[in-house]
């Protein structure tokens, strides 16, 4: 196969899955013959187009604001806590039970308390996103920092690196693959938590829009919003993946040149 052809084939691979899904949905909607339960593709597409010319942008922006606040704080705090725990044994000992206790609890379980605390509005989704994104990056960063090859640290010290230089120029880059994959995991669960929080505890955003359509019994609208949620989530992950490829060009496994 020529390389141009192969490139086209590689680009087409994900399309095959999408095409199969679309075909299956269309078949289901024909068989069900119930536009409320399984609206046909045409209806969903029309709905998305209609939304695009009205509220879609507002909904997406509202969701992204929730995400930016919650994920920004959660990911940064997770990163900082992990770095502190990696530096200090006793801080790690204090942190560990909290992390191990809180981490398995789904962010969704906190919804009632979050509503009580923040009331319906921006607070609920932001808190849930914050909670969900805190742990994956924390655990992954800590793992990464702890498993840095001792030999690389020794090499740096023998070359005259100060302790600070060892942290910034050896430990952080060595842990970067773990940090970035933690950031991606965090973003994934953050996106889920965002929709959950907006469904019940917000007054704006894509999740909130789903409930809004449900009240009007508009399954077209619900489905169209779900499609948008999937697409934007995929796009955000693609952005992080691109960042990963860029920053890890040196890595034999993720490197773009490798």
């Amino acid at each position: 196969m020529s390389s141009a052809l192969r490139r086209v084939a590689t680009a087409a691979q994900p399309m095959i899955g999408i095409a199969a899904l679309i075909a299956a949905w269309q078949a289901a909607s024909v068989i069900a013959a119930n536009p409320t339960l399984a609206p046909p593709l045409g209806a969903i597409a029309r709905q998305i187009a209609a939304m695009a010319s009205t509220d879609l942008l507002n909904d997406v922006v509202a969701s992204l604001v929730h995400l930016l606040l919650g994920y920004g704080c959660g990911a940064i705090l997770g990163l900082v806590l992990a770095l502190l725990a990696a530096r200090s044994e006793w801080f790690a000992a204090i942190l560990d039970p909290y992390v191990e206790f809180l981490r398995p609890i789904s962010a969704i379980a906190w919804i009632p308390i979050a509503i009580l605390l923040f009331g319906v509005g921006r607070g609920v989704p932001v808190f849930l996103i914050f909670y969900a994104s805190l742990f994956p990056i924390l655990v992954s960063t800590l793992d990464g920092v702890r498993s840095v090859d001792r030999g690389l640290i020794n090499a740096g010290r023998a070359l005259g690196a100060s302790r600070r230089l060892v942290v910034t120029n050896i430990i952080l880059p060595a842990a970067l693959p773990s940090i970035l994959s933690g950031a991606r995991l965090s973003l994934g669960v953050a996106w889920v938590a965002m929709v959950a929080g907006e469904l019940v505890g917000a007054d704006a955003g894509l999740g909130w829009r789903i409930m809004w359509y449900q009240e009007f019994f508009s399954m077209d609208g619900v489905m169209a919003t779900i499609v948008v949620i999937g697409a934007v989530g995929w796009l955000l992950d693609a952005l992080l993946r691109a960042l990963q490829r860029r920053l890890l060009a040196w890595s034999p496994t993720t490197g773009a040149r490798g």
Partner: peptide, 14 residues
């Protein structure tokens, strides 16, 4: 005291 390691210990990101 320069060191050359058996597994090189080169910095993979440099």
């Amino acid at each position: 005291r320069g060191v050359m390691f058996q597994d090189y210990a080169l910095f993979p990101w440099r």
